[in-house]
Design a protein around this nucleic acid. Structure first.
Length: 181
DNA sequence: CAATAGATCATCT
DNA sequence: GATGATCTATTGC
């Protein structure tokens, strides 16, 4: 069962933290979300939405619970979840997942990976492993084909908060969330 | 093993 | 025309 719309209709920081431990799936592949970053918009210059409402950032300003997929460094597709109220910008970048299903398929899609832990331990790797592309930009996660649902609660799991990485602006804000277990 | 460069292109100035 | 929410191969200790 997919997470309800209201789960996403909250501030990006809250959604980013609560997304840890949830399961992201597409087709036969799925994995537990273990790393996220919040891009709340507003005065956060690191957010793509800081440039304002453009053709590219349109979906970030749209209804929560939709996918924002963009091309990074001309090479990689990165997957985000739109958050907050409609008309207000905000999204969460999914940075890493722990493979749960479709291991064989992920292996095939990521020939460079040495082992399962390297299938989706990065924003660009994760989209490759799950088969997510820019064609999914704007897709509704409540309906599919990409969905997010509850996962099993792991024992002794802790949430770690650090500054976001790979950015130059607002690089000091603690908006990166990791699940350690 | 750590550091660095190259790949590659849509979006914005 | 510059820039980037990255990944990988290669070079250098």
């Amino acid at each position: 069962m997919s997470l309800p719309r209201r789960f996403y209709s909250r501030p990006a920081e809250d959604v980013a933290r609560d997304l840890l431990g949830k399961v992201l799936s597409h087709g036969k592949t799925a994995g537990t979300i273990v790393e996220t970053e919040a891009y709340p918009g507003g005065d956060d210059l690191a957010s793509h939405s800081a440039a304002g409402l453009t053709e590219r950032t349109r979906v970030i300003f749209g209804q929560a619970g939709h996918a924002y997929v963009y091309l990074c460094y001309g090479i990689h597709d990165c997957f985000n979840v739109v958050t907050g109220r409609e008309g207000e910008p905000g999204c969460v970048l999914i940075r890493a997942i722990d493979p749960l299903a479709g291991i064989g398929l992920m292996q095939k899609r990521r020939p460079n990976a040495r082992n399962a832990s390297e299938f989706a331990n990065g924003p660009g790797k994760l989209t490759r492993a799950l088969g997510i592309t820019r064609a999914h930009n704007g897709a509704d996660l409540v309906r599919g084909p990409i969905t997010i649902h509850e996962g099993k609660t792991k024992r002794d799991s802790r949430i770690e908060v650090t500054p976001r990485i790979g950015i130059t602006k607002c690089a000091d804000r603690p908006l990166r969330f990791l699940l350690r277990y």
